[in-house]
């Protein structure tokens, strides 16, 4: 019965596939919000999840695609959504703040996660969510 109960964590995880999200030429220095759909298996249901990424090109010319899930307690952060903190990500739940590259400035213990990114033929493809590698 124990094996029965823990079955979901022992099942093989699907390999993360990359999804075409945005044209590279549209990416600016300011983060922009992009939504994309991902097919997922949920028990006995097949569904599509809508994911959100904030993408920008930073000063080193790298494409940075951040996941907006706050590293404090998992609310959704927004860009420039609080006039007291211009040009920062701000979380409405407990006031966590991040730089444009996702570095944690307040409340949150870690920088924002980012999506694995690859660029093909001028399009940006996003994959699995991984810990931030751009900021230390």
């Amino acid at each position: 019965m124990l094996r029965f109960a823990v079955d979901p964590i022992l099942q093989n995880k699907e390999e993360g596939s990359f999804v075409k999200v945005a044209e590279e030429s549209k990416i600016t220095n300011d983060p922009q919000e992009f939504h994309f759909e991902l097919k997922q298996q949920d028990g006995w249901y097949n569904s599509t999840a809508t994911l959100t990424a904030w993408i920008r090109k930073n000063d080193q010319g790298e494409i940075v695609a951040l996941s907006p899930i706050c590293k404090h307690l998992g609310c959704l952060v927004g860009w420039n959504n609080n006039k007291n903190f211009p040009d920062e990500y701000h979380c409405p739940c407990h006031g966590a703040r991040y730089t444009p590259d996702g570095k944690n400035l307040a409340v949150a213990p870690k920088p924002l996660d980012q999506y694995e990114t690859k660029i093909e033929n001028g399009w940006i493809y996003l994959g699995a969510i991984v810990p931030n590698t751009v900021v230390k």
Binding site: V6, I9, Q11, D42, Y45, L73
Partner: peptide, 25 residues
């Protein structure tokens, strides 16, 4: 996410409660 923040065991506790990798069926 709070369960996930438990040292070392967090991700396992989260997935066990969640019954998989997402909050779903």
């Amino acid at each position: 996410e709070i369960a996930n923040s438990v040292p070392w065991l967090g991700p396992i506790i989260k997935e066990l409660l969640q019954g998989g990798t997402i909050v779903g069926a």
